[in-house]
Amino acid sequence: MREAKKITKAASLAPILYPLTGRADVGSLGGLALTAFWIALAIWSGLTLGVFLLSHRLKVVLRIVVTTLFFFSPVLWGGMILLREEVFDEQTVQVKETTQGPLKVAGATFPAGSTVWYDQTGSVFDQHVLSGRHTRRALREIHSPQPVSWGDVRITGLKFDEGSTAIDVDLDGDQVIDGWSCAVGGFGIDMGLTQDGPKLRSCWLSAPRQWHGRVVPAGANVSRVGDTDDWDWIPPD
Rank of each mutant, 00 (worst) to 15 (best):
Val75Ala: 12
Thr99His: 03
Glu86Met: 13
Trp77Phe: 15
Ser73Tyr: 01
Leu76Asp: 01
Lys96Glu: 08
Trp77Val: 13
His56Gly: 04
Gln100His: 14
Thr92Gly: 07
Val87Ser: 03
Gly78Leu: 15
Val75His: 02
Thr98Val: 10
Asp89Pro: 02
Leu82Cys: 09
Phe72Thr: 06
Ser55Cys: 07
Arg63Cys: 00
Arg84Gln: 10
Gly101Phe: 02
Gln94Trp: 10
Phe70Ser: 03
Leu62Cys: 04
Phe72Lys: 00
Phe70Pro: 00
Gly79Val: 05
Arg63Trp: 00
Asp89Asn: 12
Lys96Ile: 11
Val65Ile: 12
Gly79Asn: 10
Ile64Trp: 07
Ile64Asn: 01
Ile64Ala: 09
Gln100Asn: 13
Thr67Phe: 04
Gly101Ala: 15
Leu62Thr: 06
Val93His: 04
Ser55His: 01
Gln91Lys: 13
Val105Ile: 12
Phe72Trp: 07
Val65Met: 10
Leu58Ile: 05
Thr98Ile: 13
Val61Leu: 13
Glu86His: 14
Val66Glu: 00
Glu85Pro: 07
Val66Pro: 00
Asp89Met: 09
Leu53Trp: 07
Leu76Ala: 13
Phe72Ser: 10
His56Leu: 06
Ser73Glu: 04
Leu76Thr: 09
Ser55Ala: 11
Lys96Ala: 15
Val87Gly: 02
Arg63Val: 01
Gly101Gln: 12
Glu97Ile: 12
Glu85Val: 02
Leu53Val: 07
Ile64Phe: 00
Val75Cys: 05
Leu83Lys: 07
Leu69Lys: 04
Ile64Val: 08
Arg84Lys: 08
Leu53Glu: 14
Val60Cys: 06
Glu90Tyr: 11
Ile64Pro: 00
Lys96Arg: 14
Val61Pro: 00
Pro102Cys: 03
Gln100Asp: 14
Leu62Phe: 15
Arg84Asp: 15
Phe72His: 03
Val87Trp: 12
Lys59Phe: 05
Glu86Ile: 10
Arg84Ile: 03
Arg63Asp: 03
Val95Trp: 04
Gln91Pro: 09
Gln100Arg: 15
Glu90Arg: 14
Glu90Lys: 15
Arg57Cys: 01
Glu97Cys: 02
Glu90Thr: 15
Pro102Thr: 02
Asp89Arg: 08
Val105Pro: 01
Leu82Ile: 06
Leu82Gly: 06
Gly79Phe: 06
Phe88Glu: 11
Thr68Asp: 11
Ala106Trp: 02
Trp77Leu: 15
Phe88Val: 02
Trp77Lys: 07
Val95Glu: 09
Leu76Trp: 04
Met80Gly: 09
Gln91Ala: 13
Thr98Tyr: 04
Val75Asn: 06
Ser55Tyr: 01
Trp77Ser: 14
Gln94Ala: 12
Ser55Glu: 04
